[in-house]
Amino acid sequence: MPLQLMKGNHALSEAAVRAGCRFFGGYPITPQSEIPEYLSARLPQSGGIFLQAESELAGINMVYGAAAAGFRAMTSSSGPGFSLLQEGISYIASAELPAVIVDVQRYGSGLGDISQAQSDYFQATKGGGHGDYKCIVFAPASVQESADLVVEAFDKAEEYRNPCIILSDASIAQMVEPVLLPEERGIDPDKAWAVRGKHGGEFKRVTSTMYYIEDFDAYIKNKYDTMAHNEQRWESVHTEDADVVLVAYGISSRICKEAVSEARAQGIRLGLIRPITLWPFPVNAFSGLEHVKAFMTVELSALPRLDEDVKLACEMRVPVRHFLGGVSIPDSSVITEAAIAILKEQR
């Protein structure tokens, strides 16, 4: 399979079908609309179902139903639409069903605007809906990762019977890069837990598993502890001797990689931790970094979000600063300058 030139949203959609996704229910909103647009043509070709729902609420609850039948199902949204999905995500988590939810982040609260942002971090990682649940949150930083991580998300969703979130943004979604698409896989809806309808199978309830699992508190805590322990993913760039380590995911990590490269060329020891999972946050990436003098998050949001998790991960042993953007995309040189300023403070 040769490299293809694809937009982030298209690569993600194609990879979802190849990963066995056979149901999409959702509602258009920029900058994620290429996902339902693509799947509206592609899913019927592969025997799947695409449904443009009357609202995001309907879409996520259709996903709930398709997932209960054992099929790989997904939805996607942006901005206010992602807020509307939260109740349904909580229900899917509560029923312990797999699903993939894509949030292509856009700027601002309320209606906001269609440009890139990373402001939905808390909503995705801290449980945007009610109750005791977590979603594994994957943050692609390229078109290739948009394809790779959606496959991973479907696999992990099924492994843990838990919804997974892909936290993309308008930049990654709209940019075009070469991508090697995953191989087409078959489907396997015949799960022990899946409902079969009146023509087969035993009686099953699709509801919160808390109603029939004994010692549910311990059970559910153990489930999420296991995920937190096993599913941390990250990329470290030159952290081994870094004085200041940048922490950034998605599109901002790309700008930071350039900043690290430029800083190193000037003899400045800058490093980068790029979380690939945002929940579980890759706390393991921060061990063995006693030489680091400060961390700086780089976030395309008006308010800091990621920096709270970095403060926890490094246990506040060193200062944690943040560099914010959003409406305009910062130049890598400005990030390097900010890191140098922090370094001067520490001397």
Binding site: L5, P31, D113, I114, S115, Q116, A170, S171, Q174, M175, V176, E177, R254, I255, K257, E258, S261, I329, D331, S332
Partner: peptide, 29 residues
């Protein structure tokens, strides 16, 4: 390849930015 992206007007200016190189393109902007 990154398109100019925002609430653009019909007939307004359109643009795209490309980076072409021999090693990994770190920053598309």
């Amino acid at each position: 390849w990154v398109p100019s992206y925002g609430s653009e007007m019909r007939g307004g200016t359109a643009s795209c930015r490309l980076r072409i190189g021999d090693s990994e393109i770190l920053n598309p902007f």
